[in-house]
Design a protein around this nucleic acid. Structure first.
Lengths: 348, 348
DNA sequence: TTGAAAGCGCTAACAA
DNA sequence: TTGTTAGCGCTTTCAA
C-alpha cells in the first residue's frame, strides 16, 4: 500500500501539497496538481481512512444495526440504508443482533471503537438501556421506537396498517376476529395490537382478549397460537385471523392446513409485511405491505442531514438541537385470496 | 470519548502503562492493573480502533462482499461469515454489489481504504479484473470461483447437486428434460449445467440443446424461459424442468401456472437452493438444498486461519504460501411434491 | 502556492 | 514494573 508520502515523493512535492492536491485541488497550482494526480494514479494510491479519520476526527461512517438480517424486511431496510449512505459518500457498517441484548451490546461496543458519526438502529427490547453505551451519538430509530425522547424515528404507520387490515376483515362480514400478536416489548407489536383493538371497538364488535394470542415473532409461535385459536369450539373459533408479523403468518397458515381448514372459506388470514411466499402460496395471502427500502433510505437521509446540521455548528450555538424528526410512512393493504366473507354456518 | 490518556491520568500512570494494563495485563503489577481497569470502567473507555489499527498495522477486520443481500442465500452466507468473524474477534464489513462491476469496484476501493486483513467475496463476472484492485490481500472466494489460481475457494458441489437432481428426474421416468440455466459467466451456472448434461449422457438420454434455455438469474428470466419451453408442441415439450437457481424457479412455477399446467402431473420441477417459498408453495418444490450458513462460516474460518499462518511469518520464509484450500460442501436433494413420474400421454 | 511541523490516539522499543 | 519517546499516515495550522 503506497502512502501519500510515496505519492509526494514521486511528484516531487511535500506530503502536505500532495494531500491538498487530492483533497482540495483548488489550493494547488494546476501543474503541481496534475503531477500529483498522475503520481497517485500510477501508484494506485488509496488514502488510508484510519489515518485520515484519526486526524480529521471524522470517519464518514455510520453504524447500522438490524435485529435479523435473514428476515427479508430487515435485509431490505439495510440495503436502503447502505445505498443511501453510499450516495452521500458515507460508509455503512452493518451489524446484526438477533434480538439479543448481549449481541446488541457487543455490536454497539465494536461500533463505538470505529467512531461512527451516527447510528441507525432497529431497536430491541433492550436498546433503551444499551444505547446509553453510545452517548452523544446521533441516532435514528428505524421501524421500531424505544420512546427515547431525543432521537429521530422512521417508522411505518402500524396503527393505520392494523386498522386497514381489521376493517377489511370486518367489511367482509367477520365478527369473530382473532389476532396473533408479537411480544408487547417492541413498539410495532403494541401499535398493531392497538390498531386492531380500536377498530373492533369502533365497529361495535366486542374485543375478546382470549382471541388475542401472543407469540415471539417466530414461525413456530404463530403456528402454536393459531393451533390454539383454531381448536376452539366452532361457535367460539375466530373466522378470521390478523397476524402481527411476517414469520408468524407462515406458521398460522401451516396450522390451518394441519387442521384441514380451507383458506379463505373456513378461515380468512391477513398478515403484516409482504413477502415472496405470501405471494406464491396457495392461496396468495392478503397482507399489509411496508415500504421497507424507502424506510431505510429515509432513515439514512435524515441521519446524514442531521450530521450536516450538527457540523454546521448549530450544536454549539445554544442547546437548539434540531428537534428530532418523526417520519412515518403509510402501509398498503394488498388484498389477495386469503380473505373472504365467512361461510354462514352458525347463523342459528 | 475518553482516551487512554484520560484513563492513565485518572489511574495515575503513564499512557503506556494504561495501554499495557488493558491489552497485556500480565505485564503490569496487580495493584496498578486494578487501578487502570477501574479507571477505564469508570470512564466507559473504549479503545479507538482507528488509532490502534494505525499503530499496529493490523485492523482485525475483514471485508465481505456478496452480490445480493436481498437474496436469502446470500444473507445467510453473510450471517455465517459475520458470526464466525465475531467468534474470532474480527469485525466483518459487509458490502453488496448487485452483480454490478462498478459497485464491486467501489466496494473494493472503500474496503481498501479501511485496510481489511482479508476478503471474502462472492465474485461477479468482473471480479477477476476487479480483484486486482486489492493485490496482496488474502482472499476467499465464496459460492462461486473466478479461476484465480492463488485463492482459497469455498463452494458447494454444484455438479453433484445437478447430477442428483437430474438423476432423480430420470429415475422417475422422464426422458425429455429441460433446464433453465444461469448465465454462463459464473461458475455455479456452468457447473450445474455440466452436471445436468453429464447425467443425461450417462443415462443414454440425448442432450437437446434447444431444451436448455439461459436466464440472468431473475424470476422474470425463469418465467420467460419456462414459457418458451412449455409452449413447445406436446411431443417436444419437456415433462420435467431443472432450474439452475432459486429466483428463476419461482418464475418457472408461475409460468406453469399461467399455462394451466399441473405440477407435478403435467410437469415436474426441481429447483436449486431451498427457500421458504419452495417449502410453502402448493405443491412444495423439490430442491437441491445448499448449506449456506456453513459455507459462510467455513469461508471465514479458512480466511482467518490463513491470516494467522501469514502472521506467523511463513510468508517471509520463502515463497511457501499455504497452498490454497479448495473446500467443497455437499448439497442435499430434498424431494417434495413437485416431482413425479410423467403421465404417459405420448406412448403412441 | 508550497513546505515544515505538529498532533489525532494508540502501542512498541528502549531505558530506567 | 514503569515511563519516555517515537511514529503509524494523514491533514492542517503557520510561516515563508
Amino acid at each position: 500500500m503506497s502512502s501519500i508520502q510515496d505519492v509526494a515523493t514521486l511528484a516531487n512535492v511535500s506530503a502536505a501539497t500532495a494531500s491538498r492536491a487530492l483533497s482540495r485541488p483548488d489550493m494547488v497550482a494546476q501543474p503541481t496538481r496534475e503531477r500529483v494526480l498522475h503520481a497517485a494514479q500510477q501508484l494506485g494510491y488509496q488514502p488510508n481512512m484510519l489515518a485520515r479519520s484519526l486526524r480529521q476526527r471524522e470517519t464518514r461512517t455510520i453504524g447500522v444495526i438490524v435485529t435479523d438480517i435473514l428476515n427479508h424486511f430487515h435485509a431490505t431496510l439495510a440495503k436502503g440504508v447502505q445505498d443511501a449512505a453510499d450516495r452521500h459518500g458515507y460508509t455503512a457498517f452493518l451489524f446484526n443482533t438477533d434480538e439479543d441484548a448481549g449481541k446488541e451490546r457487543r455490536a454497539l461496543d465494536t461500533l463505538r471503537g470505529h467512531l461512527p458519526q451516527g447510528l441507525i438502529v432497529v431497536p430491541t427490547a433492550h436498546s433503551r438501556e444499551n444505547l446509553k453505551l453510545v452517548p452523544n451519538l446521533p441516532i435514528v430509530e428505524l421501524d421500531r421506537v424505544t420512546g427515547n425522547p431525543g432521537v429521530t424515528t422512521v417508522t411505518v404507520d402500524n396503527i393505520g396498517g392494523a386498522r386497514a387490515a381489521t376493517k377489511h376483515l370486518i367489511g367482509l362480514g367477520h365478527t369473530r376476529l382473532g389476532m396473533i400478536v408479537g411480544k408487547q416489548d417492541i413498539s410495532t407489536a403494541v401499535e398493531r395490537h392497538a390498531g386492531f383493538q380500536q377498530t373492533l371497538e369502533e365497529a361495535g364488535i366486542e374485543y375478546h382478549p382470549e382471541l388475542v394470542l401472543p407469540g415471539e415473532h417466530r414461525e413456530e409461535d404463530g403456528r402454536h397460537a393459531a393451533l390454539r385459536l383454531l381448536s376452539l369450539p366452532a361457535h367460539l373459533r375466530p373466522t378470521a385471523l390478523f397476524v402481527g408479523n411476517n414469520e408468524m403468518t407462515v406458521g398460522a397458515v401451516l396450522a390451518a392446513r394441519e387442521l384441514g381448514l380451507n383458506i379463505p372459506d373456513d378461515l380468512s388470514i391477513v398478515g403484516f409485511d409482504d413477502s415472496r411466499w405470501a405471494q406464491t402460496m396457495t392461496p396468495p395471502i392478503t397482507v399489509v405491505a411496508q415500504p421497507a427500502y424507502d424506510l431505510g433510505v429515509l432513515a439514512c437521509d435524515h441521519l446524514i442531514a442531521q450530521l450536516g446540521y450538527l457540523q454546521a455548528g448549530h450544536l454549539q450555538s445554544g442547546r437548539a438541537r434540531a428537534s428530532p424528526a418523526r417520519v412515518q410512512l403509510p402501509t398498503q393493504l394488498i388484498v389477495r385470496q386469503s380473505t373472504a366473507p365467512p361461510v354462514c354456518v352458525s347463523t342459528v
